[in-house]
Simulated scan of single mutants.
Amino acid sequence: MAPEVHTEGEKYTIEWDDDIGTLIHTWTAFASGEAFREGCNDLLAAVEERNATKMIVDTSNVKAHDEADKQWLQTEWTPKTVEAGVQATAMVRSDSVISEMEMKEMSENMPDDADGGPEALITDDMAEARDWMADQ
């Protein structure tokens, strides 16, 4: 079954994939500041509405993030997703060294499952993210 579109923004789409019980947030263009936070907060609202425990965030169309946005993700947004019940997150990054380094740095500064944070996967392959999420 094809994922059901939950929210469609100017620079992102949020879908519900019933086959794997997962929200999929796809960034279709670079966003920063208020536009970035709006997209993230729409995902959080979808998590709360669906009582979702799993999400895939596809940033493969984005090469890098603004430093202030990364800080906001780490200190404000991610704790809210944990509080909302997210237990597993897969991040699909672009296939570039810069993106790989940035995602690794961001994940090192986020709570992991040992700290009460979600199980996490970082990959450059959406099929791998879907397969991993199906097993969560």
Rank of each mutant, 00 (worst) to 15 (best):
residue 3 P to C: 07
residue 8 E to C: 10
residue 10 E to F: 08
residue 11 K to G: 07
residue 11 K to A: 12
residue 13 T to N: 07
residue 16 W to D: 07
residue 16 W to N: 08
residue 17 D to S: 11
residue 17 D to Q: 10
residue 17 D to T: 05
residue 18 D to F: 05
residue 18 D to Q: 12
residue 18 D to I: 06
residue 19 D to K: 09
residue 20 I to P: 00
residue 21 G to Q: 14
residue 22 T to R: 04
residue 24 I to M: 12
residue 25 H to N: 13
residue 26 T to Q: 13
residue 27 W to M: 08
residue 27 W to G: 01
residue 27 W to L: 05
residue 28 T to P: 02
residue 28 T to Y: 04
residue 34 E to S: 15
residue 36 F to E: 04
residue 38 E to T: 09
residue 39 G to M: 03
residue 44 L to A: 03
residue 45 A to G: 14
residue 45 A to K: 15
residue 45 A to P: 13
residue 47 V to H: 04
residue 48 E to L: 08
residue 48 E to V: 13
residue 48 E to R: 15
residue 49 E to G: 13
residue 51 N to W: 07
residue 52 A to W: 09
residue 53 T to S: 12
residue 54 K to I: 04
residue 56 I to Y: 00
residue 57 V to M: 05
residue 58 D to V: 04
residue 60 S to W: 08
residue 60 S to Q: 07
residue 61 N to E: 07
residue 62 V to C: 08
residue 67 E to M: 10
residue 67 E to P: 15
residue 68 A to Q: 06
residue 73 L to M: 13
residue 73 L to V: 11
residue 74 Q to V: 15
residue 74 Q to E: 14
residue 76 E to F: 03
residue 77 W to C: 01
residue 79 P to E: 04
residue 80 K to D: 14
residue 81 T to A: 06
residue 82 V to P: 00
residue 82 V to Y: 00
residue 82 V to G: 00
residue 82 V to E: 01
residue 83 E to N: 04
residue 83 E to F: 01
residue 84 A to D: 05
residue 86 V to I: 15
residue 87 Q to W: 08
residue 87 Q to G: 12
residue 90 A to H: 04
residue 91 M to N: 11
residue 91 M to F: 05
residue 92 V to P: 05
residue 93 R to C: 07
residue 93 R to L: 11
residue 94 S to K: 10
residue 95 D to M: 10
residue 96 S to I: 05
residue 98 I to H: 08
residue 98 I to P: 00
residue 101 M to I: 12
residue 101 M to E: 07
residue 101 M to Q: 12
residue 103 M to A: 15
residue 104 K to F: 10
residue 104 K to P: 00
residue 107 S to R: 12
residue 107 S to V: 09
residue 108 E to Y: 04
residue 110 M to S: 08
residue 110 M to T: 11
residue 111 P to A: 14
residue 113 D to M: 13
residue 114 A to Y: 03
residue 115 D to M: 09
residue 115 D to R: 02
residue 116 G to Q: 05
residue 117 G to L: 04
residue 121 L to G: 02
residue 123 T to G: 08
residue 123 T to F: 03
residue 124 D to Q: 13
residue 124 D to I: 09
residue 124 D to K: 09
residue 125 D to S: 10
residue 125 D to W: 02
residue 125 D to C: 07
residue 126 M to P: 03
residue 128 E to P: 01
residue 128 E to L: 06
residue 129 A to I: 05
residue 133 M to Y: 02
residue 134 A to T: 09
residue 134 A to F: 02
residue 135 D to W: 01
